Simulated scan of single mutants.
Amino acid sequence: MRDATHITGVPPTDLLSFGDQVLAEERRRFNAANRDHRRFLITARLGVFAAALILWEVASGTIIRHFFIAAPSTVSVALYRWAVSGELWYHAQFTLTATFLGYLFGSLAGILLAWPLGIMRTLYRITEPYFLVAYSVPAVAMGPVFILWFGLGMTPKVVLASYFVFFIVFINTVTGFQQVPQGLLDVTRVMGASRIDTLRTVIFPNAIPYVLAALRITLPAAMIGAVVGEFIASNRGLGYLTRAAASRYSTAGVIAGVLVLGGIVLVMSLMLRPLRHALRWQDAVEVKGGAD
């Protein structure tokens, strides 16, 4: 049999070196194409944003009355006044605190409760109707109930934010536990695996993508819960600041509050990028109870 040298006239070591060079060149081209694509996306997004701002500025006061849509320049003035006076930072700290505490407590409660129920399927079938009834109640409707129970301080906002987070994490964690094929569980038992080994090597790895996917979308949900609580009854927080602007018929203040809340949610989404990267190696997971 002829070796590579007889066939190609090139020693095998040179062929390997040539192959490495080809792969390196292709990798360089791929990275360059990715960078160009990212630059195009950033430029296009900035262009759309600038065009929207210009159209908004022109339309306000000419096509649409200032009372309904304040111009970006007016909104910027309202934001500047809030920032200079300290109102923005003062109210933002309460909203962010309620959001992160609600996210933490809701996520932990959802995972810890889903753990035994996801493994003991019969117990979950018994309790499932009660969870479905509780989940069917609109979370916003629970705001006055929590305020009645816990007063007007920080506690009802944290509880409401946790309520928004809990069911999404709980349902998806249970789904992750129950998606393990029964045949795979039977094989592990036949091979002599203990319950702890089955949990560690089969059940938990299968549930992780569902848990991460739920955690990825529930931080903005926690923000919604905290703000809803502030809208209903509060004297501090970004929800209160926006509601106070609406009570004064300050369109610029209302839009400024909405923009601040949207900016915070955007920053939160960027903070959750590591979870997106962690999910890339997993198969596509359908997240229940929320939208991306």
Rank of each mutant, 00 (worst) to 15 (best):
R248S: 15
F231I: 09
A245W: 10
G229T: 02
S250D: 15
I232H: 05
R236D: 07
T201H: 13
M268Q: 13
V211P: 12
A233E: 02
A244R: 12
V202P: 11
F204Y: 09
I264A: 15
M271L: 14
L241I: 06
T201S: 11
A207N: 02
M268I: 12
G253W: 08
R236K: 14
G257E: 02
A256H: 03
I203C: 03
T201L: 11
V260S: 11
V265M: 12
R236S: 10
G262Y: 09
T242K: 12
M271E: 00
L215Y: 04
A207K: 06
V228I: 06
T242W: 06
S250Y: 10
I255K: 06
V258T: 13
R216V: 01
N235M: 08
V265T: 14
E230R: 03
G253A: 05
T218F: 01
M223A: 11
A233T: 12
A221C: 09
L259T: 08
S247P: 00
E230H: 00
S234R: 08
E230W: 02
L261C: 08
T251I: 07
I264N: 09
G253E: 00
A213Y: 09
A244M: 14
F204L: 15
G237W: 08
G237M: 07
T218M: 00
A213Q: 00
L266G: 11
G229R: 01
L199M: 12
T218C: 07
L241A: 15
L259G: 03
L238T: 01
P209Y: 01
R200H: 01
V211N: 05
P205V: 02
P220L: 05
L270W: 14
R200V: 03
N206P: 04
A233K: 04
A222G: 09
V254F: 09
V260M: 09
Y249E: 09
S234N: 08
L261G: 05
S269K: 15
V265A: 14
L241D: 05
I255S: 08
A246E: 13
S247Q: 14
L215T: 03
I208T: 08
T201C: 11
R248F: 13
P209L: 00
G237F: 06
V254L: 04
S250M: 10
M271P: 06
A213S: 14
A256Q: 00
